[in-house]
Design a protein around this nucleic acid. Sequence first.
DNA 1: GTGAAAGCGCTAACAC
DNA 2: GTGTTAGCGCTTTCAC
Lengths: 350, 350
Amino acid sequence: MSAKRDSSGAGGRRVTIADVARKAGVSRATVSRVLNGQDTVDPVLAGRVRQVSRRLGYHPSAIAQGLARGASHTIGVVVPDLANPFFPEVVKALTVAAGKDGFSVVVADSDEDPEAELRLIQDVSRRVDGLVLCSPRAGIADLRRVVRKGLPTVCTNRMVDPPLTASVTIDSGRGMQAVIRHLAELGHRRIAYLAGPPSSSSNADRLGALERSLPDAVVIPTGSKSQEGYASAAAAAEAGATAVICFNDLVAFGALARLRTLGVAVPAEVSVVGFDDIPAADFVHPTLTTVRLPKAELGRTSWEVLRDQLGGHGASASVRLEPTLVVRESTGKAAGVAGNAVAVGERAGS
Amino acid sequence: MSAKRDSSGAGGRRVTIADVARKAGVSRATVSRVLNGQDTVDPVLAGRVRQVSRRLGYHPSAIAQGLARGASHTIGVVVPDLANPFFPEVVKALTVAAGKDGFSVVVADSDEDPEAELRLIQDVSRRVDGLVLCSPRAGIADLRRVVRKGLPTVCTNRMVDPPLTASVTIDSGRGMQAVIRHLAELGHRRIAYLAGPPSSSSNADRLGALERSLPDAVVIPTGSKSQEGYASAAAAAEAGATAVICFNDLVAFGALARLRTLGVAVPAEVSVVGFDDIPAADFVHPTLTTVRLPKAELGRTSWEVLRDQLGGHGASASVRLEPTLVVRESTGKAAGVAGNAVAVGERAGS
DNA sequence: GTGAAAGCGCTAACAC
DNA sequence: GTGTTAGCGCTTTCAC
């Protein structure tokens, strides 16, 4: 029971490369070479170094390596809300892809607050080699102010014009067009849109596409959460819509729930469509017709584009991915006559 | 091509503290003092430094600060699967709480692979001041091997015995007991459990509690995803169970879907219960009775416990949180029990 | 109050 | 092949 700070890093001071060098009777440079897999070292020494190194429980400090090498092998990703099922999938694909290339990912959640987002961007920028801004909510002017020129950055799931950085986006407008076509084929004429947050550029895209091809659609300001969908659904029904397009699946879930409590049959009386295709879309009842956004691809591609920049392959790419309409049970032929007999009184606040 | 590294970090070299010092006509030490809010500097100089600093677009490198201060103000969190709705909520609460204390969070997703998990733990350990292991899947021996003594660590949502690190857990067994009591009150006698992954300690807890109070329950190996729940549900029905307890909500969703396709009414013929209480639980149909795990609290508390360790407040804490049963529509009186002749299937005409 | 100097732990020329 | 020597960008005694 004597001082045994040998096996596996002792409680006290951390083991450094100097400790290993000393114990192994070589220079720090040699230790560094061995541990970084350089083949220019005498096999005997190399073996000794490796042995001492593991006996001492030595683990090189990534911080120090970062300083010395001028690259931390860490990137940052800023998201508005990790609790929104859309983002974890993107972040997961991103971290896994980056991890395969030896990069760690710092995740920052702005909680849908543009101010906080700006702060996080600046903060994270100080400690990473590159940055992914996922659906940033901040205004373009603010964004321009905090995005560091010189720091490889890709803006994901938001179109910024003129482009501020490389970008990976999804053609939301096309998704909306597909929805409109689908509903038209089913005979729907009176359509309502439960709009997302004004700060969301996806929402702007969808709204734009909607108004372009369906100028008389009823637009109801809603939000991005189920509760908000629940609150807005009644208004859509009141407006006599036979089809309700929702900003995202979460909102659609809320709408579905509300319509059920109102006794409005889906899709017999009203059709409902979402955006995202989160996993639960396949398990609500009726299962949800929705526009599938390639979330994993978004994350993976974001990393690839960022990696190119990190590698100095300059030219900011601008990739655009395509969504696909997934038709399930929540959409059907339009009811013969618009409107329904149900009294739609109360509307929850918020 | 003259060097114009003046206004806002030029394309080339990054602006360092030395640049600021030179332009402001002071020493680097003074710049450091000013920017770190020390009040021992001549206000005039301080003002000049601040001005030059922002004019040059200087942002201290967190990497270099980390090396110099011996702390990176970054912690790591390793999760099995960010796509499982349970984890994003924990991670979100964790990152937000840590962020308030000025800490960044590196997120690593092991994709449910114990091998990968071990690798990630070691990798992340090299670049952080502390570590949160969220529901680690690796074996205890492996875990013991890679968890660095000396690196503040908290193990969340998994009981390790004997304790390897500080821990924050949820008393899953109590949750299971509440479920059993609830089902007993409803008259259920024949109960099936769709078990989670063997590597999950939550599953072990639940299974243990189940077998202790209900030795003759039918246990069906299942997994943690909806698909798996879908696959196992038929077996539960075949076994004549009037109530199905599912490892988690995702599995319950799958079971719900399968029972529907089998024409089994929930809860009239079979009751279904989940674990977690993910947001969608309130939007499936019927809405899901489930054991709510305090996910946000888990994340927040994990940070607090870790922070205490970082602050040197030694003694590894061991916090245990309580789950609560949330009764919704998916559970009801056991078939055949007096008082429940009503068919509850108000399914909208599909 | 302010500057000079010595590191933090590591890597990478550059000698030998 | 291997050791020596400079740094990477910052903080922090310690003199002045």
